[in-house]
C-alpha cells in the first residue's frame, strides 16, 4: 500500500554533483522492492511546483529508513540536496514496479549503472546478495568523482568501473568495459542516462541477453493518472511511473 509520509532527514553527505541522504519514517515502512521510487515534495522552493521522482537507493526496514542519491539538477533537487539533518521531507512511496528477480541462485547477474543511475542498483544488489547471488557491478561516470559510494557497493559485490576521462577504472563507456568479454551473464540490469541505457540495451540485444532498464521520463503525478511520462512500447504509450520505471528491453522500441 502506498503512503504519504513526513520523513526526517537523519544524515546527508555531499558529493559535489550529488548527495546521499538517509531518511527515517515515523511509521512502519511499506514493503519496498528494488527499482521503486519516491515522489518527494520540495518545500520552500518557489520554482518547484511538482514533486520530484527519486529512486530508492537503500532500505533499512529495521530502522524504518530509506536512503536516496539526489543529483543536483535544477532548483528542486538543489534545494533538497541542501537540507540538513533534522529537516522534514514529505514523500509518497513506494511507487512504480520493480526489477524482476532471478529464478535461481545460479544465475549470473550484471548490474550496470551510469552517473546517478547507480542509485537503485545498490538496493537491488543487496537483495540479490540476500538471496545467495553475488552480482557483478559495472559503474560508469564521466570522472572518478561521479563514482560515489563505491566502497559501499564493494561491500556487496565486486565493482568494475569506467570513467570517460580515465581517472578511475577503465577509460571509456560502460559498454566498452572488459567485463563483458571476460564473463557470461544471464541477466543485465541497467540504470543511467538514456543514451547509455540504449547502448547497453543494444549490446544485450546483440548477445541475446535478458536485460531490464530503469527509465526516468519527466512525470507529474507518479501514480499513473496524468499520462505525462509515457514511453512508447510494443503495446503503445505506457506510463513509466506505474507500469515502469523498470522495463524489459523487449517491450521498448529501442
Amino acid at each position: 500500500m502506498k503512503q504519504i509520509t513526513d520523513f526526517k532527514l537523519m544524515e546527508s553527505i555531499d558529493y559535489g554533483k550529488s548527495v546521499w541522504q538517509r531518511y527515517r519514517s515515523p511509521v512502519p515502512l511499506p514493503f519496498i522492492e528494488a527499482g521503486q521510487f519516491v515522489q518527494v515534495r520540495v518545500d520552500d522552493s518557489p520554482d518547484t511546483y511538482l514533486r520530484r521522482p527519486i529512486s530508492i537507493h537503500d532500505v533499512d526496514p529495521t530502522q524504518n529508513e530509506i536512503s536516496l542519491l539526489v543529483q543536483k539538477v535544477g532548483d528542486g533537487t538543489r534545494h533538497l540536496a541542501a537540507l540538513t539533518a533534522g529537516a522534514m521531507v514529505n514523500m509518497v512511496l513506494p511507487l512504480g514496479n520493480s526489477f524482476s528477480l532471478p529464478q535461481s541462485d545460479r544465475e549470473r547477474i550484471l548490474l550496470v549503472g551510469g552517473g546517478i543511475g547507480i542509485a537503485p542498483l545498490f538496493y537491488l544488489g543487496k537483495i540479490l546478495k540476500s538471496k545467495g547471488i553475488t552480482p557483478q557491478f559495472l559503474l560508469g561516470g564521466k570522472t572518478k568523482g561521479d563514482l560515489i559510494r563505491r566502497e559501499a557497493y564493494e561491500k556487496i559485490a565486486p565493482v568494475a568501473c569506467t570513467t570517460e576521462d580515465g581517472s578511475f577504472g577503465e577509460k571509456g563507456f560502460v559498454t566498452q568495459h572488459s567485463v563483458w568479454d571476460h564473463a557470461v551473464f544471464d541477466r543485465v540490469y541497467v540504470c543511467g542516462p538514456k543514451p547509455m541505457m540504449k547502448a547497453v540495451a543494444a549490446r544485450c540485444k546483440e548477445k541475446d541477453l535478458w536485460c531490464e532498464v530503469s527509465l526516468e521520463n519527466l512525470m507529474a503525478c507518479g501514480l499513473g493518472a496524468c499520462l505525462c511520462c509515457v514511453e512508447n512500447t510494443t503495446e503503445g504509450h505506457v506510463c513509466v511511473c506505474k507500469e515502469g520505471p523498470i522495463f524489459n528491453i523487449r517491450r521498448l522500441l529501442w
Binding site: 520554482d47 518547484t48 511546483y49 521520463n217 519527466l218 512525470m219 507529474a220 499520462l227 505525462c228 509515457v230
Partner: peptide
C-alpha cells in the same frame, strides 16, 4: 495521445 515529452513544469503550475 501525443508523443513524449508531454509535460513541462512552470512557475506555480504545469
Amino acid at each position: 495521445g501525443n508523443p513524449y515529452p508531454r509535460m513541462a513544469e512552470t512557475a506555480s503550475g504545469m
